[in-house]
């Protein structure tokens, strides 16, 4: 476990790391479930007490590590409000699906924070992991109602950051996306007591 933990004490950075780890597994899971990349390029891994699939494609790996390391910084600095994983049709650049990961910032344990002189949370790690597991299982279950992607698709991750946020190197501003005739499904939320993560999938409703 990468997050810092001392006697049920979660620091801001530790919480951000938990969030980013969740994002990594969630994005990988979506990529696998939605069939964006061939299943043989994924490797099974035990996490949160369930088996999850992680890509072995070097390009995606490096993309995700770059993305999540920067996101972690931003989450620590409370710059990010939402991360969107968009699934795009390569042929006509149409957005077919959008996985929104809404980040909300919470107070944490105020007394403990005063004691430690930094913002900390006191939620039990096992409980957090159980909550994340529930969300992951829901993500896996979405395949039963999401429309079948029958075209060549690709993905991108958009970060909704505050306007005062600097644009680092290799990053660029993107156009906002919109799905025509969208259907939204809210999945379960989980909280680290410092961050609250809400997962929403919106997809194009086919008549």
């Amino acid at each position: 476990m990468s997050q810092q933990q001392t006697k049920n004490c979660i620091t801001l950075r530790g919480s951000a790391q938990i969030i980013c780890e969740y994002l990594k597994f969630a994005i990988n899971s979506v990529l696998f479930q939605r069939g964006l990349y061939p299943p043989e390029t994924f490797k099974a891994e035990q996490q949160y007490g369930i088996t999850l699939l992680i890509t072995e494609n070097d390009q995606i790996k490096s993309f995700l590590s770059n993305l999540l390391s920067q996101s972690e910084e931003w989450i620590v600095n409370k710059k990010v409000s939402k991360l969107s994983l968009v699934i795009i049709n390569v042929a006509n650049k149409e957005v077919l699906e959008c996985w929104d990961f809404n980040v909300q910032y919470e107070e944490g344990d105020i007394e403990l924070s005063k004691e430690k002189k930094e913002t900390v949370g006191s939620k039990d790690l096992k409980k957090i992991q159980q909550e994340i597991r529930d969300v992951m299982l829901q993500v896996a279950a979405t395949i039963s109602y999401l429309p079948f992607l029958d075209c060549r698709c690709t993905f991108d991750v958009l970060i909704h950051a505050k306007t005062d946020c600097d644009i680092p190197e290799k990053w660029a501003e993107a156009e906002p996306i919109a799905i025509a005739n969208a259907q939204n499904v809210k999945l379960k939320t989980f909280s680290t007591s410092l961050h609250n993560m809400e997962t929403v999938v919106s997809y194009k409703l086919v008549d």
Partner: peptide, 15 residues
Amino acid sequence: RTKILHLADNPAAAA
């Protein structure tokens, strides 16, 4: 309120 950022070298662009 927010501005949307993404990595310039993203899979969508590559694809």
